[in-house]
Simulated scan of single mutants.
Amino acid sequence: LDAVSLFPDDEQDAVAGAIAEALTTGQSTIEAEFRTAAGKRVPHEFTADRLTDQDGNLIGLVGTGRDISERTRRERELQDQKEQLEQFAATVSHDLRNPLTVIQGRLALLQAEQSNEHLAVIETATDRMERIVEDLLWLAREQQEIGSLEPVSIDTAAEAAWKLVSDPADEAELYCDCGADTQPLVKADTDQFRHLLENLFRNTIDHGGRDVTVVVGEIFGDATGFYIEDDGPGIPAEDREKVFEAGYSTSESGTGLGLNIVKRVADAHGWDICATESSMGGTRFEITGLELVE
C-alpha cells in the first residue's frame, strides 16, 4: 500500500516530499490532513524515521501520527479573535480618537478665550477618555506579545516613566532605593516594562493624590524583584486580588484597565505581581521572578 495514497490529492505532494526527506536525512515531520475510511479529512502531525539494519543498510521507514484536530481548532479560534481585536482597535482608533481630538482642540480654543470651572471639568473628562482609548488600544494590539529581552535599569526606567506620568506642578515625589553603588539590571521588553511602570505610577497618583510619595526598591532573597510603594490610603486586604481585574477601579479618574495591563505585562514576562500594605501605610506592589543581569 502506497502511504501517499492515504492522503487527499492536495496533500500528496507535500507528504511525498516529507518521505523523501526522511529517507535522505533520517527524519522528517509534517502536518497534513489524513483521509479516513469514511472519507473525512482529519489534521494530523506525522513523524517519519529511517530504519536501517546493523550494517546501516536501509530497511524502510517507520511513521507515527497524532490527531491535532483540537490544536488546529484552537489556532483557528485564536486567529479569529486576533482579527476581531484588530478590527476593534481600528474602530477605537478612528471612531473614538478622531472626535476626541476635535473636542480637545475646541476646548483649548475656549480655554484661551475664557476661564470657566466647567471647562476644567470637561478637560478632566476628556483626559480620562484619552487614557481609556490608549488602554483599550494597548489591550487590543499588544496583548501578551513580548519582544526581545534587553538589560533594563530599574532606577532609570522608573525615573523616565515617572516624568511621563507625574505633573511637575504637583507635589508628588519619587524616591529610588535600589542601591547607590550599582543600579540593578533586569531582562525585559523595554517598551512593555515602561508601560508597566507608567500604569503603576498612574495608579499611585490616582489613588494617593497629587502629593503622594512613591518609593521604588529592590527585593532580595528567594524572590528577586522590585517593589513600588506609596503613602496613600492603601487597598483593603479583601480587594488586593480584585485590583488586577479589568474594569475594577475605586477612583473616579481611573480607567479600571491600568492594573490589568500591569498584570498582563508581568504574566507575559513570567513574573509574579501582588499587592500588599506598604511600610508607609499605603499600597505596595511587589514584582518578583525577574532575571537579573550579572
Rank of each mutant, 00 (worst) to 15 (best):
L1T: 06
A3E: 08
A3S: 09
L6V: 03
F7K: 10
D10V: 02
Q12P: 14
A14C: 09
G17D: 12
A20Q: 14
A20G: 11
A20H: 12
A20S: 10
E21G: 07
A22M: 03
G26A: 04
Q27Y: 11
S28Y: 02
T29E: 13
T29M: 12
A32Q: 05
A32T: 09
F34V: 10
T36K: 06
T36M: 07
G39A: 10
R41H: 12
V42P: 05
P43L: 12
T47G: 01
A48T: 00
A48I: 14
D49W: 01
R50Y: 14
L51F: 08
I59T: 02
G63D: 01
G63T: 13
E70L: 08
E70Q: 09
R74Y: 11
Q87S: 13
F88I: 15
A89C: 06
A89T: 02
S93N: 07
L100R: 10
L100S: 09
L100N: 04
Q104C: 03
R106C: 06
L110H: 04
E113G: 04
S115N: 11
V121M: 11
I122F: 15
I122Y: 05
T126N: 03
R131T: 03
I132T: 06
R141P: 12
E142R: 14
S148L: 14
E150S: 05
P151K: 01
V152C: 11
D155F: 07
T156L: 02
A158N: 05
A160W: 05
A161P: 07
A161I: 01
S166P: 06
D167Q: 00
P168D: 12
P168L: 02
D170T: 07
E171T: 08
A172R: 10
L174D: 13
Y175L: 12
Y175V: 02
D177N: 09
G179E: 11
D181R: 15
D181M: 15
T182G: 00
Q183A: 14
V186R: 11
K187H: 06
D191S: 01
Q192C: 14
Q192M: 13
F193Q: 08
E198Y: 02
N199H: 15
L200G: 05
G208W: 11
G208D: 11
D211C: 08
V216Y: 11
V216I: 15
G217I: 01
G217L: 00
I219Q: 10
F220P: 05
G221I: 01
D222K: 10
G225Y: 10
F226R: 11
I228V: 14
E229V: 03
G232M: 03
G232H: 07
G234I: 01
V243D: 00
G247P: 06
Y248F: 08
S249M: 01
S249D: 08
S249K: 03
S251M: 00
G254V: 02
G256Q: 08
I261P: 00
V262T: 13
V265G: 00
D267H: 00
H269W: 14
W271I: 08
E277K: 14
M280C: 05
M280G: 06
G281S: 08
T283S: 01
E286N: 09
G289V: 04
E291Q: 15
L292D: 03
V293Q: 07
E294R: 15
E294A: 09
